[in-house]
């Protein structure tokens, strides 16, 4: 695909981000009001103490906002990993960082920790997984693509096994929560979790956006970054911590939702090009839109008789993202692996 203009001026940036902001708002409004069960705007705004209003404030709105935040966090982290690890197939789920965070979340659940402490444990597990994978995949000082993906595979299997082990040991109520965490779901959320996630994701997206100009040269490798005046090692640490924070928080709240960080950045790269100064903020909004739409489908499409089934959103993202990953692998195998 040939793009017409390839320089990123303030004007082009503002124009594209403006459109994405508008698209985000429209999507948020649409999925909030048109999902199942249907809520009429009349009932919510004008009738006193109706069930619709309760559902709107305590179920629908937090769920939609949470979906947007988690989608933003996973997409931005996906871009970060793809650039820092120089691998277009990198994604928090595939690399096993989400798996590590889920293990942290499960440990937190099993120990009966408070929500904030669970976030902390998830973050630390995500960071340890990321650093571990990065360290293991570096063969002889350079990052090999196949060893990166294989290490991620191993990490996932390992984390999953430990989660199942813990699952076998805890009582049935906690086991239920663990299963939800593994499936990936935006249900059962309170305003408190939404606010916490908002604080973390907002901070993460802002920091990443402000540093995004460096990701362009860092994607060419540590040496190239250094030659172009970017202190790779220092910035890499910041990106790792911020990414782990976002993945840890997302997984602790919404569980394992795969492929968002792979699907969204690639589609946006095809449309806007690979410049990270645009790609990072665009992925935040695009990822938000993608996940709320997936969640909209998850709760509005499959019926059993008259009742709408509430699928976990992870089912929808995996159904779209899985084949997409294979498509990418097939397309890029020659140059990547």
């Amino acid at each position: 695909m040939m793009r017409k203009t390839t320089t990123l001026t303030t004007k082009r940036f503002g124009f594209i981000m403006g459109i994405l902001f508008a698209a985000s708002l429209v999507t948020l409004v649409l999925v909030t009001f048109f999902g199942r069960p249907a809520l009429s705007m009349n009932e919510i705004l004008f009738s006193e103490s109706s069930w619709a209003r309760e559902i709107f404030y305590y179920v629908r709105l937090p769920r939609v906002l949470l979906g947007f935040l988690v989608g933003a966090a996973l997409s931005v982290t996906g871009v970060n990993f793809q650039s820092l690890l120089r691998n277009p197939l990198a994604d928090p789920y595939i690399l096993g960082v989400s798996g590590g965070a889920a293990l942290g979340g499960v440990v937190g659940l099993a120990l009966g920790l408070s929500f904030q402490l669970m976030l902390g444990v998830s973050f630390i597990f995500a960071l340890l997984s990321l650093v571990g994978i990065y360290w293991i995949a570096q063969v002889g000082g350079r990052l090999s693509s196949s060893s990166l993906l294989l290490t991620g595979l191993m990490f996932n299997a390992f984390a999953f096994a430990l989660v199942l082990l813990i699952n076998a040991l805890v009582e049935i109520g906690q086991s239920q929560q663990i299963i939800y965490l593994l499936m990936g779901s935006l249900e059962a959320t309170s305003w408190n979790t939404v606010l916490w996630l908002f604080a973390i994701v907002f901070l993460g997206v802002i920091v990443t956006t402000l540093l995004s100009k460096n990701l362009n040269v860092m994607s060419l490798g540590e040496e190239a970054a250094l030659r172009l005046g970017v202190n790779d090692q220092k910035l890499r640490k910041i990106f790792f911590v911020v990414s782990s924070l976002m993945v840890g928080a997302s997984v602790a709240v919404a569980g394992l939702i795969g492929f968002v960080g792979l699907f969204v950045p690639h589609v946006l790269r095809l449309i806007f090009g690979p410049d990270h100064r645009l790609l990072i903020p665009a992925s935040a909004l695009g990822g938000g839109i993608f996940l709320v739409v997936c969640d909209f489908i998850a709760r509005s499409v499959v019926t059993s008789g008259e009742v709408y089934l509430q699928l976990p959103v992870g089912v929808i993202t995996a159904l779209t993202g899985g084949p997409f990953f294979i498509f990418l692998l097939r397309k890029q195998r020659a140059s990547i692996l």
Binding site: R3, T7, Q82, V217, L228, G229, G273, P274
Partner: peptide, 25 residues
């Protein structure tokens, strides 16, 4: 090695990295 398909002009503009301001446009 370029992991993403930057345009030729984008690659040359990376040479301006040591000079770009805070916003980086």
């Amino acid at each position: 090695h370029f992991p993403f398909s930057y345009s030729a002009l984008e690659v040359v503009l990376m040479g301006r990295t040591p000079y770009v301001g805070f916003a980086g446009f």
